[in-house]
Simulated assay, not measured.
Amino acid sequence: MNKKLDKIRIPRKERSVNKHLFTLLSDYNKLVNRKERKFDVLLAIGVSFVVLLITVIFIHSNRDVLALFKVLNDSTIGVMAILAGFNISSLALIGAANLTFLKKINKTDLLKQILIIFAFSVILNLFLIMLGIVVSIVSSQFLQIQISLIVLWHWCVYVLLLSVMFFWVGLIIYSLLIAIRNAGLIYKFILALAEAE
């Protein structure tokens, strides 16, 4: 057996990808301070509430609410795919940087912070894409089923649709706010790299 392969073998306890995922989520939770988290959550809720209010004022049909939700969702999937690509490209850019520079900024914890935030963003974007695909399929089926025309007029379904849309729009805005912060981080990283050259 190859001795080099033996040296890089990962211990059995460390082989789970899920363990690394939970570690990343925990690290992100520790990294983002309460003020940033509060700002992101409150702004996402605020924008989502405005969208909800506009929907309630102008759309009273459950079928129309579902159609609007599907349009928003389908548009969002493309945006999330672009953001995921941006975050993955940023991670690749960071990984391709000068090794001496990486070691230097690693001492200041800047490298770890950037990696945690961008990796979390990739996970969030991909999760929203998967969820968006499911939402798109389900909403398409409901819009096509003729019997749903009767069921969808019920006020309980109206409230349920608005609640789901409120939650979904909030998640999207939250993801976009993180993307804006990521753009600032990659800007800071490139400036630091340019100064080190």
Rank of each mutant, 00 (worst) to 15 (best):
L143N: 02
L25M: 14
G95R: 15
V56N: 05
V135Y: 06
F127R: 06
I186L: 13
Y158L: 10
D40K: 07
W153E: 10
C156T: 13
S75K: 15
I88W: 04
S16A: 11
L68C: 02
S163D: 10
Y174D: 04
L162I: 08
A119Q: 15
I129N: 04
K38F: 07
E14Q: 12
S136G: 01
S26K: 15
A196L: 11
K35T: 05
T108Q: 05
I172D: 06
L193P: 03
A44I: 10
V71P: 08
N62G: 15
V164I: 15
S26Q: 14
K112D: 04
L21K: 10
T100I: 10
R37K: 13
L126P: 00
I173C: 02
F118L: 11
F69D: 13
L42V: 06
S136N: 05
V151P: 02
G85P: 11
N73R: 15
K103C: 01
L68E: 10
I137W: 04
V17N: 11
N62C: 10
M130K: 04
V47T: 06
L191E: 15
K13E: 12
D40A: 03
I129D: 04
N73E: 14
I105P: 00
V169P: 12
R12P: 09
P11V: 01
R9P: 04
V50W: 06
L131D: 07
N182H: 09
V71K: 15
D6W: 06
L52Y: 11
K112T: 00
H60I: 03
G78E: 14
L131K: 14
L93N: 05
S136A: 04
L91R: 08
A96M: 15
F86Y: 07
N125G: 00
L24C: 01
L43N: 04
P11N: 07
V122W: 09
M165P: 08
S16G: 08
V159Y: 15
V164R: 14
F58H: 09
M1P: 08
S90R: 06
F118W: 05
L162H: 02
V65E: 13
V157P: 08
L160H: 06
I133P: 01
I137Q: 05
F167A: 06
Y187H: 07
L185H: 03
A194R: 15
A81M: 13
P11G: 00
V71L: 15
V122Q: 10
I54K: 07
L24M: 11
Y187N: 09
E14M: 12
H20G: 08
F49L: 14
H20Y: 12
S163Q: 12
E14V: 00
S139G: 01
I150L: 12
L66M: 13
I82E: 02
K4I: 07
D74R: 14
S163Y: 10
G170R: 11
I173D: 00
L24Y: 05
D40S: 04
K3E: 13
N87H: 06
F49V: 05
A97T: 08
L93E: 12
G85Q: 07
F120V: 00
A84V: 03
N182T: 04
K188V: 01
L110K: 12
N125V: 00
Q113W: 00
I173Y: 02
I116V: 03
I145P: 09
V51R: 10
Q146W: 10
M165E: 13
